[in-house]
Amino acid sequence: MGVGALVTTGVTLAGASPSGAAVASAGDEILLDSYAGTDDQKLTATLAAAKASTPRRPIRLAARSHTFSLTRTTFSGLRILGPNIGWQNPEIGGSNGALPQCTVTLNCGSGASAWLVGTATTYDVTVAGICFLSSNGVTQFYHHPFSAGTSYATRLDTLTFFGFKHVLGTPADPFSATLNTWAGDWTLVGVQDTQFSLRGSDNWFVPSSMNYGWAGANGGKYLMRFSNVAKSSVKHLYLTARGGSRGVLVEGTASQQGGLAFSDCVIEGQNAGDPAMGALIVVKGGGVSFTNTRLNFGMARPSDFTDQQDTALVMVTGGVCLLTHTWVNRATATAESVPVVAVSGGQAHVSTLMGMGGNWTGKPKTTRTGGVLVADSTVTAA
């Protein structure tokens, strides 16, 4: 049954198991609420049933609120699905039941104490159609470090996260992804720290849409960190780095194969009057391209930061960065003399960069103090 399908055919319940729980018959989905006990007890039973099934049977949650507090080890073929599919946002009220809310509150920690933890290479893990809430501000959704192999062919579809410390990986221990796919409509709000810290290759981080915003004086932490990610596509992100946060960090080794390709994304502060204080994109290594990017409202007060000196909306200190077909809007507090691109190491190739918003007297500026800068006639190079 597809992720978006409702359970409409009914489920035949077998006799009680030794624990007293009813179990779905062979060939059906495993319904969480066909078991007795607390939500954690039900999930323990359904995970055991799913792991023992051949082929793997998916676990289906109910159209209600759930609470889980135990860390779970992932396994190949694990599928946890909401009852239906659709955009969800816990900030939106008064919808008269129109939003397909299947909510899960997690009372877990981060790293090895996250809700889902990979301890070996897994294949074909899927989570879809669920609105996750953190009860404590320190919860991480899914942790699979490189030391435990890789999360291979994982699919994450139409998910919401509210109040999380991290979603995938941690800045110190990124999520190891190979052939991963993101799909559907995502929302991340009320965030407490960097939600995505990723490494790996051959991925399609391409949801239909992702709305992800972070506000507050957080010392320049990044919304997303890509550490040695190669040959992967990233699309359809709307990243709002308000106040003290930065947007995207890209880093990688000299031997990295490149091919991290962003396209059709918005990376910005909230608006001209509520901007990001520093850089929106920082490239320290690896190979990355940004195409059709809306890059707005950054570098309003970079003196706020002490970890590094922010010099432009896009800073290239190493690696290779290709930036093309870019729309740029200035924050009210950002002078036109502030560079859009600054290169102090590595290479930057800049083309078709257009200043918008009606407050430019000349072309957007690029600068080089080291490395290589190749820019076309749409910018002023210094």
Rank of each mutant, 00 (worst) to 15 (best):
L6Y: 10
G10Y: 07
L13W: 02
G15I: 00
A16G: 06
P18Y: 14
S19C: 09
S25Y: 06
S34W: 10
S34Q: 11
G37N: 10
G37E: 08
D39S: 01
D40Y: 06
K42L: 13
A48M: 04
A49I: 05
A49Q: 11
K51N: 07
P55D: 00
R57W: 03
P58C: 00
I59Y: 02
R64D: 14
H66Q: 11
T71Y: 07
N84P: 07
N84H: 13
E91I: 10
G94S: 08
N96P: 06
G97L: 05
Q101N: 15
L106P: 12
S113G: 06
A114G: 05
L116W: 14
V117S: 08
T119N: 15
A120R: 07
V138S: 14
T139A: 15
A148I: 08
G149R: 08
A153I: 00
D157F: 04
T158G: 10
T158H: 12
T178Y: 12
N180K: 07
G184Q: 01
D185P: 05
T187C: 08
T187P: 06
V189P: 11
V189F: 10
V191G: 12
V191Y: 08
F196H: 01
S197W: 01
G200L: 03
D202N: 09
N203L: 04
S208K: 10
G213T: 12
K221R: 13
K221I: 03
L223F: 05
R225D: 04
V229Q: 02
K231Q: 12
S232W: 04
S233N: 11
S233L: 15
H236G: 04
H236F: 13
H236C: 03
R242F: 10
L249S: 04
L249V: 01
V250T: 13
Q257E: 15
G258M: 08
A261W: 15
D264C: 13
G269E: 04
G269P: 10
G269F: 07
Q270R: 13
L280Q: 03
V282L: 10
V282I: 14
V282M: 10
G285E: 06
G285V: 05
F290I: 09
T291W: 11
F297G: 08
G298F: 07
A300W: 01
A300R: 07
R301K: 14
S303L: 03
S303Q: 13
D304C: 06
D304Q: 11
F305A: 09
T306Y: 15
D307V: 12
Q308A: 15
Q309V: 15
A312F: 01
M315S: 12
V316S: 10
V316W: 02
T317M: 09
G319P: 03
V320E: 12
V320Y: 12
L323K: 00
V328G: 03
N329Y: 15
T334A: 10
E336P: 07
V341R: 01
Q347A: 14
V350E: 00
M354N: 13
M356N: 13
G357A: 07
G357T: 10
G358S: 05
N359P: 05
W360Q: 08
T361F: 04
K363C: 12
T367P: 09
T369V: 14
T369D: 09
G371R: 03
V372M: 13
T378Y: 00
T380W: 00
